[in-house]
Amino acid sequence: MTTVNVIRAEWSKVWSLRSTAWSLLATAVLSVAIGMGAVFFTHLQEGDDGSKTNASLTGFMIGQLAICVLGVLIATGEYTTGQIRVTLAAVPDRTRFLLAKAVVAATVATSGGLVIGFATFAAGQSLLGRHSASLSEPEVLRSLIGVGLYSGVLGVFSMACGFLIRHSAGAISAVMGVLYIGPVVLFLLGEFGFAVAQWWPTGAGARIMDPNGENPWGGLGIFAGWTMVLLVAAWVKLRRSDA
């Protein structure tokens, strides 16, 4: 048994469930539709390329929920069904198992995010005709690739939450709390909240998707750091507890 074997097995598992393709499709449709709406209603002809790109990506703020669900289900799908015992009887090396799951979650979410990023950009900018933002603008290109990278990290982040909580609804709620509720609470806290928000996992991570974002790579690094912490916690729990 090699790690490559286990990755191939987990890759096959993720695509043999209908929910994978459906959640990616849902993310894409939601993101493109909302992005087009945002571009259409905000009359951005005179704006800079960054604002135009951001308008296109508005929908992804909602659509990313499907990435969370995908990441969470990669973990909790094992526990809620009891499949985990069959899986670990075939792959008793839990470190290898978790690594394979993380690689698959990252790969699926990153490639999904890349496709969605470029698709929403193309669809949104098509509404602007000759005023559309240009891909040759480095920060625009970086933010579209950033959608893929952010998605990849979010996928692993969600998966780690799934391994820690082991229940789909609970884990999805937890990730949604981080994504949507945390930033609102921080906003209400004023100055202090603003300082914390710079280090908030998804808040910091999202800067990679904003052409006008400050320190985008640092932000992605913060998100990746938080994700590593969760992943290590998930690893410790997985190794210590009974399946």
């Binding site: 286990v6 097995a9 096959s12 598992k13 043999s16 929910s19």
Partner: peptide, 16 residues
């Protein structure tokens, strides 16, 4: 996992 086919279930085990 009830969502997989019998073949895919066994295939994943075999691949691993």
């Amino acid at each position: 996992h009830p969502g997989r086919t019998a073949y895919k279930h066994l295939l994943a085990l075999a691949l691993s």
